[in-house]
Design a protein around this nucleic acid. Structure first.
Lengths: 229, 229
DNA sequence: ACCTGAACACCGTTCAAGT
DNA sequence: ACCTGAACACCGTTCAAGT
């Protein structure tokens, strides 16, 4: 029944803009992974000639990838900044974790995307968390060097935790034997005795709790370290 | 002067094996980045038909990427395991950092390569550090759940730190003004006051020292946490 | 039994030709 | 001025044809 003129369908072109392009790209990556994102396929999703996309992302695929990362970071909820800096950092951590778990396929982009791109040349969206945290720490009375030290330690741990947590995957959810669920039976017992023995513990993992405990340790340690200066 | 028969040249084919393929691939990535690694280009480097590579890496490009990661992890020096577990972990951290700084282009592979691949299905090389650390902790008297908790906290921080450190790049090494070196002058002062102000501190960064301090905090905190059980 | 390379189904991006 | 799509220079991988 393809008659023309019934306006609001995704099927019809409509006017394209940067936001629409980026959102479609994010959807594609969320659903089919990073490798699925090609300019041609994205054009197909949007029912456009692939070249039309260059109008809204002049630098091509690179710009689309950066746009996706920015879109995800924009989902971070802002915080009131009147509470104690430690609780603020803790909230930021949980919030970043939440958003990353929502878009696991995008995490490599966040984590290694800006790799080897000098700070000042990164898209502004990527730098906002850094600026925000520095603000919190400086308002809390830290000197510039200490603020940076705290930020680095905190953010390093945070990203590391998220990567760690995303790696804890299950091979076969149908299975109820721990070894089998993780696919660990494939590993030679001779070379991996501990890993195989820890299968049950590997399975019961509360990422949020683990993150929280790590942060507690770090904040306590940082506080002590800095007060001894 | 291309006459035939002077055996030992890289230019002549010679017999290919898996190690040669993987080492050539690692070289390519070290020198030209991950995007430069294509089967065709790798074939060119080795003066072979690209299809010849499939003989030594049946799963194609994926297997080559995994092989590169394994090669890098093989550069990790093994440790005597008779010292205190804390000093062992500390050494492991510095050793992993050392190897990663030697092969920055490979780090994304180490960090996000196994993402969403279930534990048991990962290449053995990737799992050896995990097994090794579990061994250290269990021999040190930790129960299985605690060993895993310590491992996760420690390794999360370690990878996070390395990623962080690799991101601290310099835009223009010719320049001696801090703001300019980092390219930060491009950021609007209005939106990034703290970041811009911290330019000098950003530049003087001792990654090894920072890693060491973070580990000290974590180990102290973990020890305390676990003794209170 | 081994190796080669033609062929297929894809890429990103340039640029000339259309409107 | 805007958009389109042919064309170029690449991909990974399959598979039939050669030796």
């Amino acid at each position: 029944m393809e008659h023309a003129g019934n306006g609001r369908q995704k099927a019809r072109p409509g006017r394209l803009d940067r936001g629409i392009v980026m959102r479609a790209a994010l959807n594609l990556v969320d659903e089919h992974g990073l490798e699925a994102l090609s300019m041609r396929r994205l054009g197909q999703v949007l029912k456009r000639d692939p070249m039309a996309l260059y109008r809204h992302a002049a630098a091509g695929r690179k710009e689309v990838l950066a746009g996706i990362a920015e879109l995800v970071l924009d989902e971070l909820q802002p915080f009131a900044d009147d509470t104690h800096w430690q609780t603020q950092l803790r909230r930021i951590a949980h919030e970043l974790r939440r958003v990353c778990l929502l878009h696991p396929n995008v995490v490599p982009l966040l984590v290694t995307g800006p790799l080897s791109t000098p700070l000042g040349l990164r898209p502004a969206g990527t730098l906002k968390p850094l600026e925000q945290i520095l603000g919190i720490l400086i308002r809390a009375g830290f000197g510039p060097a200490d603020a940076l030290h705290v930020y680095r330690t905190f953010y390093g741990f945070l990203y590391g935790h998220i990567l760690n947590e995303l790696q804890e995957y299950v091979a076969d959810p149908e299975e109820n034997e721990a070894l089998l669920r993780l696919g660990l039976y494939r590993l030679p017992l001779r070379d991996f005795p501990h890993l195989r023995r820890l299968a049950p513990e590997l399975l019961d993992y509360d990422g949020s709790e683990e993150l929280d405990q790590g942060i507690s340790i770090l904040l306590a340690g940082l506080g002590q370290q800095l007060s001894h200066r």
